[in-house]
């Protein structure tokens, strides 16, 4: 795989991860457990969707220079915009990790999912601030500030749940046990990630995992929650093989673009 092709897949994945998680978080808007959390979740969703726009725009530009053979191509002319990539790809063409696409569940599940992702996302973005690719570096410099807040938010709530009431502890532990199997995929590199790590454009996922694991241990200890054992891990998102949850989410998200092709909104 060439460096350009790898860069396309990488930026696309970064965009997909942020977009899908941002979309899931935005589902809380108007339905949060307390008004301050409606605001916080909307804020986090806005950050993530903003990041997705940066990545998808860049992915389209990279792709225009080089058209990878691995993806279905040609739908939208030479340059695919952020909206072409967000609204006109089907679920098999989305390459986000499965963790982000799972339904939001109760608030414990939302917080645990966010925490597991944020604890991965922060060291990843921090590493990208030293990327040899100027665009990725620029996006990461802004994202680090946002993701620092995301991790603080999800960690604080996880501690409240773990060390709160019996019920909140139980819900948090159940969510953790259930979501744990989706964390393996975060750190299993695909070819694009390996190519870019060699080129100094993206970090090695093994390094990111070390930091993730330390954060997880530290916060779970404070939350009095038990770290699940690593067992069987789900995977496939990075290759476009998803859970059954992504399809309906995209159908909802893409409804207008799909129903009225080619018009301005």
């Amino acid at each position: 795989m060439s460096e350009q092709e790898a860069l396309f897949r990488y930026t696309l994945r970064m965009g997909d991860n942020s977009l899908v998680l941002g979309h899931r978080n935005s589902e809380w808007c108007g339905h949060g457990p307390v008004l301050e959390e409606d605001i916080a979740q909307a804020n986090i969703a806005l950050d993530l969707i903003g990041q997705a726009r940066n990545y998808l725009t860049y992915a389209g530009e990279v792709e225009a220079k080089f058209r990878p053979s691995a993806l279905p191509t040609g739908q939208a002319g030479p340059l695919r915009t952020e909206d072409d990539l967000a609204y006109l790809r089907g679920e098999r063409e989305y390459i986000n990790v499965q963790l982000v696409e799972l339904p939001k569940g109760d608030y414990a599940r939302t917080i645990v999912r966010s925490f597991l992702f944020d604890a991965f996302h922060l060291p990843l973005q921090q590493a990208l601030t030293t990327s040899k690719d100027e665009r990725l570096k620029g996006i990461a410099e802004k994202a680090v500030k946002e993701v620092t807040y995301h991790l603080r938010h999800s960690s604080e709530w996880l501690v409240r749940f773990g060390d709160g009431t019996e019920e909140s502890h139980r819900r948090a532990q159940e969510a953790l046990d259930d979501l744990w199997r989706y964390t393996g995929e975060l750190f299993t590199p695909d070819e694009a990630e390996e190519v870019l790590a060699k080129a100094g454009i993206a970090p090695k996922l093994a390094d990111v995992k070390q930091e993730w694991s330390a954060t997880v241990d530290r916060v779970l200890k404070e939350a009095t929650l038990k770290r699940p054992a690593d067992g069987w891990m789900a995977s496939g998102g990075k290759k476009g093989i998803h859970t059954e949850h992504l399809g309906p989410m995209l159908a909802e998200m893409q409804t207008l673009q799909r129903s009225y092709p080619g018009v301005e909104w």
Partner: peptide, 25 residues
């Protein structure tokens, strides 16, 4: 919010609804 027809519109709408929560506060 989940059906806004472009990422720009989605962002604007989400920010707007977030403002309303802030106004409530």
């Amino acid at each position: 919010i989940t059906r806004a027809p472009s990422l720009r519109r989605k962002t604007i709408l989400l920010a707007k609804v977030q403002d309303e929560a802030g106004h409530g506060l």
